[in-house]
Design a binder for these strands. Structure first.
Lengths: 109, 109
DNA sequence: TTTTTATATCGTAATATTGCGATGTAATAT
DNA sequence: ATATTACATCGCAATATTACGATATAAAAA
Protein backbone atom coordinates (compact mmCIF):
# COMPACT_ATOMS: atom_id res chain seq x y z
CA UNK A 1 0.00 0.00 0.00
CA UNK A 2 0.97 3.63 0.43
CA UNK A 3 -0.80 4.44 -2.82
CA UNK A 4 -3.92 6.59 -2.85
CA UNK A 5 -7.03 4.93 -4.31
CA UNK A 6 -7.92 7.77 -6.67
CA UNK A 7 -10.48 5.68 -8.55
CA UNK A 8 -12.80 5.82 -5.53
CA UNK A 9 -13.15 9.59 -5.73
CA UNK A 10 -14.42 12.21 -8.15
CA UNK A 11 -12.06 14.00 -10.50
CA UNK A 12 -12.66 17.24 -8.62
CA UNK A 13 -11.84 15.66 -5.26
CA UNK A 14 -8.63 14.22 -6.66
CA UNK A 15 -7.66 17.53 -8.23
CA UNK A 16 -8.23 19.57 -5.09
CA UNK A 17 -6.26 17.02 -3.06
CA UNK A 18 -3.39 17.21 -5.56
CA UNK A 19 -3.34 20.98 -5.36
CA UNK A 20 -3.55 20.93 -1.56
CA UNK A 21 -0.53 18.64 -1.54
CA UNK A 22 1.51 21.35 -3.20
CA UNK A 23 0.52 23.77 -0.44
CA UNK A 24 1.36 21.11 2.14
CA UNK A 25 4.99 22.13 2.63
CA UNK A 26 6.20 25.29 4.40
CA UNK A 27 8.98 25.84 1.86
CA UNK A 28 6.45 26.03 -0.95
CA UNK A 29 4.24 28.38 1.07
CA UNK A 30 7.33 30.51 1.71
CA UNK A 31 8.23 30.51 -1.99
CA UNK A 32 4.72 31.63 -2.94
CA UNK A 33 4.73 34.36 -0.30
CA UNK A 34 8.12 35.55 -1.51
CA UNK A 35 6.88 35.63 -5.11
CA UNK A 36 3.81 37.56 -4.01
CA UNK A 37 5.78 40.25 -2.20
CA UNK A 38 8.72 40.55 -4.58
CA UNK A 39 6.57 40.15 -7.68
CA UNK A 40 9.12 38.00 -9.58
CA UNK A 41 12.36 36.44 -8.47
CA UNK A 42 14.94 33.82 -9.32
CA UNK A 43 15.97 30.52 -7.82
CA UNK A 44 19.19 32.03 -6.45
CA UNK A 45 17.28 34.60 -4.41
CA UNK A 46 15.35 31.80 -2.76
CA UNK A 47 18.48 29.88 -1.77
CA UNK A 48 19.47 33.04 0.12
CA UNK A 49 15.99 33.69 1.49
CA UNK A 50 15.18 30.15 2.67
CA UNK A 51 17.94 28.03 4.15
CA UNK A 52 17.57 25.07 1.81
CA UNK A 53 20.03 23.70 -0.75
CA UNK A 54 19.74 24.77 -4.37
CA UNK A 55 18.69 21.29 -5.48
CA UNK A 56 15.91 21.21 -2.90
CA UNK A 57 14.50 24.57 -3.90
CA UNK A 58 14.63 23.67 -7.57
CA UNK A 59 12.58 20.59 -6.71
CA UNK A 60 9.95 22.61 -4.84
CA UNK A 61 9.78 25.08 -7.72
CA UNK A 62 9.13 22.23 -10.11
CA UNK A 63 6.16 21.03 -8.03
CA UNK A 64 4.69 24.53 -8.02
CA UNK A 65 5.28 24.70 -11.77
CA UNK A 66 3.69 21.31 -12.39
CA UNK A 67 0.28 22.36 -11.09
CA UNK A 68 0.63 25.67 -12.91
CA UNK A 69 0.76 27.99 -9.92
CA UNK A 70 4.01 29.54 -11.10
CA UNK A 71 5.81 29.87 -14.39
CA UNK A 72 9.38 30.71 -15.22
CA UNK A 73 10.88 32.68 -18.07
CA UNK A 74 14.56 32.45 -18.93
CA UNK A 75 16.29 35.75 -18.25
CA UNK A 76 19.84 35.41 -19.58
CA UNK A 77 21.64 32.99 -17.30
CA UNK A 78 18.96 32.89 -14.64
CA UNK A 79 15.25 32.13 -14.58
CA UNK A 80 12.49 34.51 -13.61
CA UNK A 81 9.76 32.76 -11.69
CA UNK A 82 6.41 34.35 -11.00
CA UNK A 83 2.86 33.50 -10.08
CA UNK A 84 0.40 32.75 -12.88
CA UNK A 85 -2.55 35.04 -12.09
CA UNK A 86 -5.07 32.96 -14.07
CA UNK A 87 -4.19 29.70 -12.35
CA UNK A 88 -3.93 31.47 -8.99
CA UNK A 89 -7.53 32.65 -9.30
CA UNK A 90 -8.64 29.19 -10.46
CA UNK A 91 -7.10 27.50 -7.43
CA UNK A 92 -8.48 30.18 -5.14
CA UNK A 93 -11.96 29.43 -6.47
CA UNK A 94 -11.56 25.68 -5.97
CA UNK A 95 -10.82 26.21 -2.27
CA UNK A 96 -13.47 28.89 -2.03
CA UNK A 97 -16.09 26.49 -3.40
CA UNK A 98 -15.27 23.93 -0.73
CA UNK A 99 -15.23 26.43 2.12
CA UNK A 100 -18.38 28.25 1.12
CA UNK A 101 -20.21 24.94 0.79
CA UNK A 102 -20.51 24.86 4.54
CA UNK A 103 -22.99 27.49 5.68
CA UNK A 104 -22.06 29.18 8.95
CA UNK A 105 -25.67 28.90 10.11
CA UNK A 106 -25.69 25.10 10.18
CA UNK A 107 -24.71 24.19 13.73
CA UNK A 108 -25.56 20.59 14.53
CA UNK A 109 -23.16 19.56 17.32
CA UNK B 1 16.21 12.88 5.35
CA UNK B 2 12.50 12.87 4.51
CA UNK B 3 11.90 15.21 7.40
CA UNK B 4 10.69 18.76 6.82
CA UNK B 5 12.96 21.51 8.18
CA UNK B 6 10.23 23.39 10.01
CA UNK B 7 12.74 25.58 11.88
CA UNK B 8 13.52 27.45 8.67
CA UNK B 9 9.98 28.77 8.31
CA UNK B 10 7.55 30.95 10.22
CA UNK B 11 4.96 29.47 12.53
CA UNK B 12 2.23 30.61 10.18
CA UNK B 13 3.86 28.97 7.17
CA UNK B 14 4.23 25.72 9.07
CA UNK B 15 0.64 25.83 10.29
CA UNK B 16 -0.83 26.48 6.86
CA UNK B 17 1.29 23.67 5.41
CA UNK B 18 0.08 21.31 8.12
CA UNK B 19 -3.54 22.19 7.44
CA UNK B 20 -3.04 21.87 3.69
CA UNK B 21 -1.64 18.39 4.29
CA UNK B 22 -4.98 17.35 5.77
CA UNK B 23 -6.74 18.54 2.61
CA UNK B 24 -4.16 16.72 0.51
CA UNK B 25 -6.07 13.44 0.24
CA UNK B 26 -9.23 12.86 -1.80
CA UNK B 27 -10.76 10.65 0.93
CA UNK B 28 -10.55 13.51 3.41
CA UNK B 29 -12.00 15.95 0.89
CA UNK B 30 -14.81 13.45 0.28
CA UNK B 31 -15.42 13.08 4.02
CA UNK B 32 -15.65 16.84 4.45
CA UNK B 33 -18.00 17.18 1.47
CA UNK B 34 -20.17 14.40 2.84
CA UNK B 35 -20.28 16.07 6.25
CA UNK B 36 -21.21 19.37 4.60
CA UNK B 37 -24.10 17.94 2.62
CA UNK B 38 -25.46 15.52 5.22
CA UNK B 39 -24.82 17.91 8.11
CA UNK B 40 -23.66 15.21 10.55
CA UNK B 41 -22.91 11.56 10.00
CA UNK B 42 -21.16 8.54 11.44
CA UNK B 43 -18.13 6.48 10.52
CA UNK B 44 -20.26 3.58 9.27
CA UNK B 45 -22.01 5.76 6.71
CA UNK B 46 -18.63 6.67 5.29
CA UNK B 47 -17.52 3.06 4.92
CA UNK B 48 -20.61 2.64 2.72
CA UNK B 49 -20.16 5.97 0.94
CA UNK B 50 -16.43 5.70 0.17
CA UNK B 51 -14.97 2.32 -0.71
CA UNK B 52 -12.28 2.24 1.94
CA UNK B 53 -11.87 -0.12 4.89
CA UNK B 54 -13.20 0.90 8.29
CA UNK B 55 -9.70 1.20 9.76
CA UNK B 56 -8.62 3.49 6.94
CA UNK B 57 -11.57 5.82 7.33
CA UNK B 58 -11.12 5.95 11.08
CA UNK B 59 -7.53 7.01 10.44
CA UNK B 60 -8.59 9.80 8.05
CA UNK B 61 -11.21 10.97 10.55
CA UNK B 62 -8.51 11.19 13.21
CA UNK B 63 -6.39 13.45 11.02
CA UNK B 64 -9.35 15.74 10.40
CA UNK B 65 -10.04 15.72 14.13
CA UNK B 66 -6.42 16.47 15.03
CA UNK B 67 -6.40 19.83 13.27
CA UNK B 68 -9.86 20.57 14.66
CA UNK B 69 -11.82 20.65 11.41
CA UNK B 70 -14.30 18.08 12.69
CA UNK B 71 -15.43 16.88 16.07
CA UNK B 72 -17.31 13.77 17.13
CA UNK B 73 -19.85 13.22 19.83
CA UNK B 74 -20.70 9.75 21.09
CA UNK B 75 -24.24 8.82 20.12
CA UNK B 76 -25.02 5.52 21.83
CA UNK B 77 -22.96 2.86 20.10
CA UNK B 78 -21.85 5.06 17.24
CA UNK B 79 -20.11 8.43 16.93
CA UNK B 80 -21.58 11.53 15.35
CA UNK B 81 -18.97 13.46 13.42
CA UNK B 82 -19.54 16.99 12.19
CA UNK B 83 -17.66 20.05 11.04
CA UNK B 84 -16.56 22.59 13.66
CA UNK B 85 -17.89 25.89 12.27
CA UNK B 86 -15.42 28.04 14.25
CA UNK B 87 -12.36 26.14 13.08
CA UNK B 88 -13.78 25.90 9.56
CA UNK B 89 -13.98 29.69 9.34
CA UNK B 90 -10.50 30.03 10.82
CA UNK B 91 -8.98 27.71 8.23
CA UNK B 92 -10.94 29.41 5.46
CA UNK B 93 -9.42 32.74 6.53
CA UNK B 94 -5.88 31.34 6.57
CA UNK B 95 -6.22 30.27 2.93
CA UNK B 96 -8.05 33.47 2.07
CA UNK B 97 -5.17 35.54 3.48
CA UNK B 98 -2.68 33.74 1.26
CA UNK B 99 -4.79 33.97 -1.87
CA UNK B 100 -5.80 37.59 -1.45
CA UNK B 101 -2.15 38.55 -0.88
CA UNK B 102 -1.63 38.31 -4.62
CA UNK B 103 -3.37 41.21 -6.33
CA UNK B 104 -4.93 40.30 -9.65
CA UNK B 105 -3.58 43.52 -11.17
CA UNK B 106 0.08 42.60 -10.76
CA UNK B 107 1.03 40.92 -14.01
CA UNK B 108 4.79 40.71 -14.40
CA UNK B 109 5.42 37.78 -16.78
C1' DT C 1 -23.25 -12.50 31.49
C1' DT C 2 -22.59 -13.16 26.67
C1' DT C 3 -23.17 -11.31 22.18
C1' DT C 4 -23.51 -7.88 18.98
C1' DT C 5 -22.49 -3.39 17.02
C1' DA C 6 -19.62 0.63 16.12
C1' DT C 7 -15.46 2.59 16.22
C1' DA C 8 -10.38 3.05 17.65
C1' DT C 9 -5.72 1.49 17.70
C1' DC C 10 -1.71 -1.55 16.46
C1' DG C 11 1.42 -3.50 13.36
C1' DT C 12 3.08 -3.90 8.95
C1' DA C 13 3.84 -3.74 3.80
C1' DA C 14 3.89 -0.75 -0.15
C1' DT C 15 4.70 3.59 -1.77
C1' DA C 16 5.61 8.73 -1.50
C1' DT C 17 8.10 12.75 0.15
C1' DT C 18 12.10 15.41 1.68
C1' DG C 19 16.74 16.91 1.36
C1' DC C 20 21.07 17.10 -0.68
C1' DG C 21 25.56 15.94 -2.99
C1' DA C 22 27.00 15.06 -7.48
C1' DT C 23 26.53 15.85 -12.01
C1' DG C 24 24.30 17.68 -16.37
C1' DT C 25 23.06 21.67 -19.28
C1' DA C 26 22.90 26.01 -21.39
C1' DA C 27 23.87 30.86 -21.62
C1' DT C 28 27.22 34.50 -20.66
C1' DA C 29 31.96 36.12 -19.62
C1' DT C 30 36.98 35.91 -20.22
C1' DA D 1 37.79 27.70 -26.67
C1' DT D 2 37.46 27.66 -21.68
C1' DA D 3 35.60 29.19 -17.49
C1' DT D 4 31.86 30.80 -14.91
C1' DT D 5 27.16 31.28 -13.44
C1' DA D 6 22.45 29.68 -12.67
C1' DC D 7 19.53 26.17 -12.66
C1' DA D 8 17.81 21.32 -13.51
C1' DT D 9 18.08 16.46 -12.89
C1' DC D 10 19.77 12.01 -10.87
C1' DG D 11 20.40 8.93 -7.25
C1' DC D 12 20.17 7.83 -2.72
C1' DA D 13 19.20 7.74 2.43
C1' DA D 14 15.91 9.03 5.96
C1' DT D 15 11.39 9.58 7.07
C1' DA D 16 6.24 10.01 6.23
C1' DT D 17 1.86 8.45 4.31
C1' DT D 18 -1.61 5.12 2.86
C1' DA D 19 -4.24 1.03 3.39
C1' DC D 20 -5.85 -2.75 5.83
C1' DG D 21 -6.15 -7.08 8.67
C1' DA D 22 -6.18 -8.12 13.34
C1' DT D 23 -7.29 -6.90 17.66
C1' DA D 24 -8.94 -3.78 21.47
C1' DT D 25 -12.63 -1.13 23.62
C1' DA D 26 -17.02 0.26 25.05
C1' DA D 27 -21.97 0.67 24.85
C1' DA D 28 -26.36 -1.67 23.99
C1' DA D 29 -29.04 -5.92 23.14
C1' DA D 30 -30.22 -10.61 24.10
Amino acid sequence: MGVTKTDLFTEKQNELAKIAKVFAHPARIAILEYLIQSNSCINGDLVQELGLAQATISQHLRELKEIGLIKGSIEGVSVNYCIDPIRWAEVQNLFQDLFSGFPKTSGCC
